[in-house]
């Protein structure tokens, strides 16, 4: 929550005294830096900021933030954050999670926090692998992936976190990646501003167990032709010379086309505020993995009633109707009689 009277801070103020213990070269470092550099810009107070995490490499995040924090148990951070955000609407509650934590063991809590539209900001570090347990496939690993637990290749279809969030009624869904600090900061800022549940998927490189998973789209020379930057109200064009675009495919979906082959009017104009998430969903399905042109940016940002404030509104309404609770009256609310 932006607080105009919040004292100015610097990145240092948001950095705890704990030594950061991710592997050298891990993408988590740049995400941490982006968050610590963004917070001074948000006009928020450290004492009103809480990071809640589950288990996994990403889940160590709260220890490195000089804020309130809880490193909880595997997959349960969205549930814990829900209880915190509902009881303390004055706080900024961030959830830091990974693909295993949020989408495997904690999948249920994630979808329900999203559908309830709890006012929490979820950063989903997606490295498509289990890092902390040393390299098993994750629910976002590509089919056929060879890992310690799938020596003959994974037989499973991966989740697409953006599609999943949209399907779970999430009101703010974005994607960014660990190689672009500016873009990360912009996405985190937008997610933080959003009232309700927001989810940012961050493509994060695990250089130890899944190095280069996003290389096809994030290598310096690949980005122009493979990262489709979504801008609200803008036609979706990409490529070094905007030579590529996204157009309707005639089947309710979308397709990538050469700009020269498509009338300007047929190029999709991105509308993150569309109530119907169908187009955002179609965009999330453009690439089946981070190997072909992939959209980043805000897929969806719509305003819907936020859960915690509605819980509070019911409490306030009950108080205004019935007055603050009277215990004696409560105990006598059933049949009573007096023994003389």
């Amino acid at each position: 929550m932006t607080d105009l009277l919040a004292p100015p801070t610097t990145r240092k103020d948001w950095t705890s005294d704990q030594e950061v213990r991710w592997c050298p070269g891990c993408g988590d470092y740049s995400i941490l830096a982006a968050v610590q550099m963004l917070l001074p810009d948000l006009g928020v107070r450290r004492e009103n900021t809480v990071f809640v995490s589950g288990i996994g490499c990403a889940a160590r995040f709260p220890y490195y933030m000089n804020t309130y924090g809880m490193h909880s148990i595997h997959g349960r951070a969205p549930a814990i954050a829900t209880g915190l955000a509902v009881s303390r609407p004055d706080l900024d509650v961030w959830v830091v999670s990974g693909d295993g934590d949020a989408l495997s063991i904690g999948g249920n809590h994630l979808i329900h926090a999203l559908r309830r539209n709890v006012n929490i900001t979820i950063l989903l570090f997606n490295n498509q692998i289990y890092g902390l347990t040393k390299g098993q496939y994750s629910p976002t690993s590509e089919s056929g992936k060879i890992t310690k637990s799938t020596p003959f290749g994974s037989l499973e279809t991966p989740f697409n976190p953006v599609s999943l969030a949209l399907g779970a009624e999430c009101t703010f869904v974005a994607r960014t990646h660990d190689m672009d600090r500016k873009h990360m900061m912009e996405m985190f800022r937008r997610a933080h501003e959003h009232q309700g549940a927001s989810l940012v998927e961050i493509y994060q490189n695990c250089n130890v167990f899944n190095d280069g998973a996003f290389e096809d789209i994030l290598a310096k020379d690949a980005r122009a032709d493979n990262l489709i930057s979504l801008e609200h109200g803008q036609p979706i064009k990409f490529g070094a010379d905007s030579q590529l675009c996204v157009a309707h495919d005639g089947n309710g979906g979308v397709r990538i086309a050469n700009s020269v082959d498509v009338e300007d009017a047929e190029v999709i104009v991105h509308d993150e505020k569309a109530q119907n998430p169908a187009l955002a969903f179609a965009l999330s399905r453009l690439a089946s993995g981070p190997h072909t042109p992939t959209p980043i940016g805000v897929f969806r940002s719509v305003e819907m009633p936020e859960y915690g404030s509605q819980v509070q509104a019911q409490i306030d309404h009950a108080k205004s109707q019935k007055g603050s609770g009277d215990l004696e009256a409560l105990l006598s609310s059933g049949p009573t009689w007096t023994v003389e």
Binding site: R76, I80, T82, G83, L84, A85, H109
Partner: peptide, 8 residues
């Protein structure tokens, strides 16, 4: 989980 969040 929600109860723990509230307690925190």
């Amino acid at each position: 989980g929600t109860a723990i969040g509230a307690a925190f």
